[in-house]
Each structure stands twice: as structure tokens, then as C-alpha cells.
Computed example of a mutant assay.
Amino acid sequence: MLVCSCFAVNDRTLRGVIESGARDTGDVGDVCAAGTGCGGCLDEIEELLSDHLRVRPVVPSG
């Protein structure tokens, strides 16, 4: 499913970016530009980030 129409980024790509370590919309934008155009997809990106972190919480080191 297309999430970011400005840069033609789909949910599969976004899940891969998030799985690779993106922790916020800025990280996602740095990797694939999604969310850096009109911003209309930011809510969807934040939802994908939230879903990922809920399933695989970040455990602080140290």
C-alpha cells in the first residue's frame, strides 16, 4: 500500500526502514524521504513506528 505519495514509498519499504533501526519520522525521512514532502503521510508513519515499537520495544543498554 502506498503511504507516501510524494516519494512513492509503500508500507513494505517503511517497515523495512523501521526494522533496520529508524526510531522516529526524522530517521525514516533520512533513509527514504517519506514524510519530508507535504507531510500527509506522517500520521501513518508514526503509526507504523508505534506498532513496531509495541511489538519489539527498545531495551536501553547499560
Rank of each mutant, 00 (worst) to 15 (best):
A22W: 01
G37N: 05
G35A: 05
G16W: 04
S50W: 09
S20A: 15
E19V: 11
E47I: 11
C38L: 06
L49N: 08
G21K: 03
A34M: 00
G37D: 06
G35H: 08
R54C: 09
C4T: 08
G29R: 07
R54T: 13
C38P: 05
E44S: 14
V58M: 10
P57N: 01
S50K: 12
V31Y: 02
S20V: 00
T13A: 15
V17F: 07
L48S: 02
G35F: 03
G16Q: 13
A8S: 13
F7K: 14
S61K: 12
C6V: 11
D24M: 03
R54E: 15
G16P: 03
D30K: 15
T36E: 08
G37Q: 03
E46P: 00
R15N: 10
S50F: 10
L2P: 12
L48G: 06
S20R: 11
C4A: 13
L2N: 11
E46M: 12
C32G: 07
G26W: 08
R56P: 00
G26A: 10
V59G: 05
I45W: 01
E19R: 14
G26H: 12
A22K: 03
L49D: 03
G62L: 12
A34N: 01
V17Q: 05
D11M: 14
R23E: 11
T25V: 15
I18A: 00
E46S: 15
R23S: 09
H52C: 04
R12L: 14
I45P: 02
R56G: 01
G35C: 07
I18E: 05
M1T: 12
G21R: 09
M1W: 14
E47Y: 08
D51H: 09
V9G: 06
S50Q: 09
G40M: 05
D27Y: 06
G35W: 05
R23Q: 11
A8D: 15
N10R: 08
R54Y: 10
I18G: 01
V28M: 02
G29N: 07
C32H: 03
V31Q: 06
L14W: 06
G16R: 14
E19Q: 08
G21P: 04
G62R: 14
C41L: 06
V28D: 02
E46L: 08
R12A: 15
T13L: 13
E44Q: 13
V28Y: 03
V3H: 08
T36R: 10
F7M: 07
L53R: 15
L42Q: 02
R15L: 12
I45F: 04
A33T: 09
G29P: 02
V58T: 12
D30C: 10
C32S: 04
I18H: 02
R15S: 07
F7N: 14
T36H: 02
G26M: 07
R56D: 11
D51V: 10
P60F: 06
R23N: 07
E47F: 11
